[in-house]
Simulated scan of single mutants.
Amino acid sequence: MTIHVNIGEAKTRLSELVAAALRGEEVIVQRDGQPKVRLVALPEAEALEREAIAAKRKAAFGCLAEKYAAYPPEAFDVPPSMTDEEYEERIKRKFG
């Protein structure tokens, strides 16, 4: 998704626009209706953002580690919902 804002609006919404750029959205700043600047997140900033999100998720799952410590690792394996053949059959039925 692309966000187009004029320069005056960009001044008041800068933190919101930076957050959108970090999420991967394209932000275009316009002057007099003409695009002038594109806000793009730095690859390093994107990597740091992803690491922070991963750390939060890991911490959330870590709070349950003691509760499930007695279970073997294979107890958490999730079987596929259908085989490849079943999937292909379903696609053929749906789309012909």
Rank of each mutant, 00 (worst) to 15 (best):
33 G>R: 09
38 R>P: 01
46 E>K: 15
46 E>C: 09
23 R>N: 01
59 A>T: 12
45 A>P: 06
39 L>M: 15
51 E>Y: 02
24 G>I: 03
23 R>T: 02
31 R>W: 04
52 A>D: 08
22 L>R: 08
43 P>H: 07
33 G>S: 12
36 K>C: 07
31 R>Y: 04
44 E>Y: 01
42 L>M: 09
39 L>K: 07
19 A>M: 07
36 K>S: 05
30 Q>L: 07
35 P>K: 13
24 G>N: 06
32 D>R: 14
22 L>C: 02
57 R>G: 08
50 R>D: 10
30 Q>V: 02
45 A>D: 14
41 A>H: 09
23 R>I: 00
32 D>Q: 12
37 V>R: 07
17 L>V: 03
20 A>I: 03
28 I>A: 03
49 E>H: 15
41 A>Y: 07
49 E>D: 15
40 V>N: 09
58 K>W: 11
29 V>Y: 02
38 R>D: 02
31 R>P: 00
46 E>F: 05
46 E>A: 13
40 V>Y: 09
17 L>A: 05
37 V>C: 02
33 G>N: 10
35 P>G: 12
21 A>N: 11
35 P>Y: 14
50 R>C: 04
39 L>E: 10
46 E>S: 12
57 R>Q: 14
23 R>C: 01
33 G>H: 11
31 R>K: 13
55 A>T: 09
42 L>D: 13
58 K>S: 15
52 A>G: 12
54 A>I: 12
18 V>G: 02
39 L>A: 10
52 A>L: 13
30 Q>E: 13
41 A>E: 12
24 G>H: 02
46 E>V: 12
33 G>M: 10
35 P>E: 12
29 V>T: 06
28 I>Y: 00
17 L>M: 08
33 G>W: 10
42 L>P: 03
41 A>R: 06
29 V>A: 04
36 K>G: 05
24 G>A: 03
59 A>P: 03
36 K>L: 10
40 V>L: 14
58 K>H: 15
37 V>S: 03
53 I>M: 04
44 E>S: 08
18 V>M: 09
44 E>D: 08
17 L>G: 03
27 V>E: 01
21 A>V: 07
54 A>W: 14
47 A>C: 04
57 R>H: 11
38 R>M: 02
21 A>W: 10
48 L>P: 00
29 V>G: 04
28 I>H: 01
19 A>C: 05
33 G>L: 11
29 V>E: 01
40 V>P: 05
40 V>G: 08
27 V>T: 01
34 Q>H: 11
21 A>R: 13
59 A>C: 07
29 V>D: 03
33 G>E: 09
57 R>Y: 07
27 V>H: 01
19 A>D: 13
35 P>F: 11
50 R>Q: 13
38 R>Y: 01
51 E>S: 05
49 E>Q: 15
